[in-house]
């Protein structure tokens, strides 16, 4: 039975987070999950829109919900944690605060759109681990990643303020997924600690301090890889390692990738297909050197 979901890519996916989409599409296609693109989607508004105007922020995100409402599958999924939270929050606030919800619905109706409220926002990680299932994932593993020691980084907005599919304080979804791929997850207390998000652009000293703590802790726990979920978390942890080293005088370099990229590697896919060459911390010999070496012995 093929599973089908309505797919919302998000703005980052078109730019710096390109690898996130490439790996997501490759892995879900392999698992026989159909992603039906939401036509003419718009930006969810992220944290910036909510800082300017509450009604407009909800209405902006709700346009996507109204577009998804016309689709055959009412389950809307997105690979970005920021988009996931904003769409999820909009959907919930419209239900929780009818006064706000009615106004947003009026604004949509005025523009010729209709939102019935049947849309459910799902995280791709949730779909991969709970709908597809780890048994199915295990069946596709061609290259068990025995020597990969993983620090699973969930970030803020995957788990807060809503988390329907895991424990909010110490989530284990990525840990269990990594085990299914043959890898070893390490104990990682900072797995849901904030990376600073967009503060990396506005107050780099602040955000780099937060990322420094996360990177250092991952290394201290003996990990050789950080898995991230969200394009912004990944960007912050992946791209600023040279700056962090300069600022704090400590080498915190560690390979980082999206969880979907690791799944793809375990499925035996080509690194290029998974967009691994787009990661700043990726070097072609990593897989051979750190993960596959001695794994067969």
């Amino acid at each position: 039975m093929t599973k089908r979901y309505t797919y919302f890519p998000g703005c980052s996916i078109l730019g710096t987070g390109r690898a996130c989409e490439e790996s997501t599409r490759a892995v879900f296609a392999e698992l026989g999950v159909e992603l039906d693109d939401l036509e003419d989607w718009n930006c969810c508004g992220a944290t910036a829109y909510m800082s300017v105007d509450e009604h407009k922020a909800l209405a902006l995100a709700a346009r996507n919900l109204a577009l998804a409402d016309t689709k055959e599958c009412p389950e809307l999924t997105t690979p970005c944690s920021g988009c996931y939270l904003v769409l999820n929050k909009t959907q919930r606030y419209m239900e929780e605060y009818p006064r706000v919800g009615d106004k947003v619905k009026c604004a949509l109706k005025d523009a010729g759109l209709n939102y019935t409220g049947r849309v459910r926002v799902r995280h791709m990680l949730d779909i991969l681990v709970h709908d597809v299932g780890l048994d199915e994932v295990r069946k596709h593993v061609k290259r068990p990643l025995k020597n990969a020691k993983i620090a699973p980084y969930y970030g803020c907005q995957t788990v807060r303020p809503y988390l329907d599919f895991d424990h909010q304080h110490y989530p284990m979804t990525i840990d269990r997924l990594a085990e299914a791929l043959g890898a070893t997850p390490v104990h990682f207390p900072l797995k849901t600690r904030c990376c600073g998000g967009s503060q990396m652009g506005t107050l780099p000293n602040v955000a780099q301090r937060l990322c420094y703590a996360i990177l250092r802790e991952a290394r201290r726990q003996g990990a050789n890889l950080i898995l991230s979920v969200c394009p912004l978390c990944h960007f912050n942890l992946d791209s600023y390692q040279p700056d962090i080293r300069r600022r704090f005088g400590e080498d915190v370099s560690i390979t980082t990738m999206y969880y979907t990229q690791l799944v793809g590697l375990a499925f035996g896919m080509d690194p290029e297909t998974l967009g691994l060459h787009r990661n700043m911390t990726w070097d072609g010999s990593w897989l051979e050197r750190e993960v596959l070496a001695g794994a067969t012995a």
């Binding site: 003419d40 989607w41 718009n42 009604h55 407009k56 209405a59 902006l60 709700a62 346009r63 106004k103 009026c106 604004a107 949509l108 005025d110 523009a111 010729g112 759109l113």
Partner: peptide, 14 residues
Amino acid sequence: IERRAELHAILDYE
């Protein structure tokens, strides 16, 4: 996006 007028109608509701 293609339907920018639709988006503007939503955002200018107030």
